[in-house]
């Protein structure tokens, strides 16, 4: 089925059965259903199989370096706070190479949606461990199995007081759509960690495995309770799915704090030359 955000004449570079197909469809549908204006929406992505997603969506995009989508997205938003900005990439891109930016983007509370495809393995470099790979996972590099503790994005985000922290499984697209929509509606930084299988390089964490090892948080779960959320973030088997934490109160948002509430896009502004002259004359 074709949608408003389908892109023509593209050669999709993913393996058959890849979880990315589901995520691509999900994002296209969410953008369409939320009636996002494609001209004022920008998706910034890093490098990796996941980061190729925006190449297949008919929207503004900036394909940058491995790990660097977040600082770029931050400044895109700062330059024009009226844009709808999304940063997208995989677990290696966002949690490994870009780990430092992950921390500081959360601290800034930039009003962007941060989508991370999490398949617990490196795809484009062909099968090495990712920061989220489970202990004991054997690869060509981690020949005796992964010994490092897996990175816990939800707990890290929470410890930095992220205002919206969520995890979904692309195996449950209806639930995923509901959560992603909430992330777009959230004012401030919103993390959506999407579990997805890699049929080529990860035979441990399969579709079936994700289904068996996760559960959807029901209506009784209080997502505004920070301490409860912190506890949930550390649950592993099974992993909770849904909005783990959301702070709906009004918080300072990075670009608004720096640029002011009704900041115009910077490309539409020039300095008052007489002001520069006055400032110079003071010396």
């Amino acid at each position: 089925m074709s949608s408003l955000f389908d892109k023509e004449n593209v050669d999709i570079a993913w393996c058959p059965g890849c979880g990315n197909f589901g995520i691509l469809k999900l994002i296209r549908e969410v953008l369409e259903e939320l009636e996002v204006d494609k001209k004022t929406c920008v998706i910034v992505s890093g490098i990796g199989q996941a980061a190729k997603t925006p190449y297949y969506i008919d929207v503004n995009m900036f394909g940058v370096l491995h790990g660097r989508a977040l600082p770029v997205a931050t400044a895109v938003k700062l330059g024009n706070p009226n844009l709808c900005v999304v940063a997208e990439g995989g677990d290696g891109d966002m949690y490994g190479e870009g780990g430092n930016h992950f921390i500081h983007t959360i601290r800034r509370n930039v009003d962007i949606v941060h989508i991370v495809h999490n398949n617990m393995v490196y795809g484009l470099t062909k099968g090495q461990a990712s920061p989220t790979s489970q202990k004991g996972f054997v690869t060509k590099v981690q020949v005796g199995g992964v010994v490092n503790e897996p990175f816990n994005p939800l707990a890290v985000a929470l410890s930095l007081k992220a205002g919206f922290v969520s995890r979904v499984n692309i195996g449950d697209p209806l639930h995923a759509k509901e959560v992603l929509k909430a992330a777009f509606r959230h004012h401030g930084y919103a993390l959506v960690d999407i579990l997805q299988p890699c049929p080529t390089f990860n035979s441990t964490n399969t579709h079936h495995w994700f289904k068996e090892n996760s559960y959807v948080l029901d209506d009784t779960y209080e997502s505004s309770d920070f301490h409860g959320a912190l506890q949930k973030a550390f649950e592993f088997s099974p992993m909770p799915l849904g909005i783990i934490y959301q702070d709906k109160s009004i918080r300072d948002i990075f670009e608004r704090s720096i640029r002011g509430e009704d900041a115009k896009p910077l490309h539409a502004m020039t300095h008052d030359v007489s002001k520069i002259q006055d400032l110079f004359n003071r010396y």
């Binding site: 920008v42 910034v44 900036f62 940058v64 370096l65 660097r68 600082p71 770029v72 997205a73 931050t74 400044a75 895109v76 938003k77 700062l78 330059g79 024009n80 844009l83 896009p265 910077l266 490309h267 539409a268």
Partner: peptide, 13 residues
């Protein structure tokens, strides 16, 4: 990287 993001959306960064 921020400088590049800034120019992308129209700043002189």
């Amino acid at each position: 990287n921020m400088v590049l993001g800034g120019w992308y959306s129209g700043a002189r960064a």
